[in-house]
Amino acid sequence: MSALFDECQLRCLAALLDTLIPPDDFPGAWDAGVGDYLQRQLQGDLADLGSSYHDFLRCLDAAARHLHKRDFADLALDARSELLHKVENHQITASWMLEPGKFFPKIVEHCGEGYYSDPGNGGNREGIAWQMIGFEVRG
């Protein structure tokens, strides 16, 4: 369980991260541990972004329900990607403080950090991302 997100938010977060780095023959972001990376960071260096993440997830679900009558996590990859493209292009706005299109690039950065940095940071489980791209650690 998570100290930061409830069950519903976690489902949405997993779907979000797996849209940014989807599974193929190598794991997607969630299975590679990016969620663990992020939750660790949100209790550390990124502690002041917790509520922005909450807002963003809320916004995604609201938009998914409006457009597809379903939660974000229940959409197929294509529909999730399409929705995120809209967010990225500022076509989805929220009625609260957060501007989703402005926050989105930060999430993309965080997701990449979790996936491609060293496993010691909580993501890139067993160096799986490095295996995928061919980076080998010696010594």
Binding site: T19, L20, P22, D24, F26, L84, V108
Partner: peptide
């Protein structure tokens, strides 16, 4: 981001 970004890295 997306599969295309993952494939680009790969």
């Amino acid at each position: 981001w997306g599969l295309a970004a993952k494939q680009f890295m790969r």
